[in-house]
Design a protein around this nucleic acid. Structure first.
Length: 111
DNA sequence: AGTGTGACACTGG
DNA sequence: TCCAGTGCCACAC
């Protein structure tokens, strides 16, 4: 039996999985969607565990600035960037370019 | 049960 | 406009 901690993490995983290909979102956006706007940091922590799960594309989740803050937690150094670039997202120096274009707001799509 | 930590976000100078 | 400091909530030990 897998221990899902609590509903919070589970929701984070669910939202992360719903991020469409070639799109990214921010921790805050997910946090807001979950009802804990101030718990954006918690989302990152959830991702820490999520990155252990292949089902959760943690590389599509970045901070509001579009900065790949969590890439340091990935196996390689620029693995996260490579994955994003593989999806058509332009990433320069850990910074997502055209963030507004690739940004995906869960509150708008998941209502 | 309490303390510390964390892949952020916001406000102020 | 950019840099720095503070606040925040929930999990882990």
């Amino acid at each position: 039996m897998i221990k899902e901690s609590d509903n919070f993490f589970e929701k984070v995983y669910t939202v992360a999985r719903k991020i469409p290909f070639g799109r990214v979102t921010s921790y805050g956006a997910i946090a807001i969607y979950l009802g804990a706007a101030r718990s954006a940091r918690m989302v990152g922590w959830a991702m820490n565990k999520a990155h252990n799960l292949e089902d959760v594309p943690a590389h599509r989740v970045v901070n509001k600035k579009g900065l790949l803050t969590g890439k340091h937690h990935f196996d390689g150094t620029n693995l996260m960037q490579q994955l994003l670039e593989n999806e058509g997202i332009v990433v320069i120096d850990n910074q997502i370019q055209d963030l507004e274009k690739v940004f995906w707001n869960p509150s708008e799509h998941l209502s």
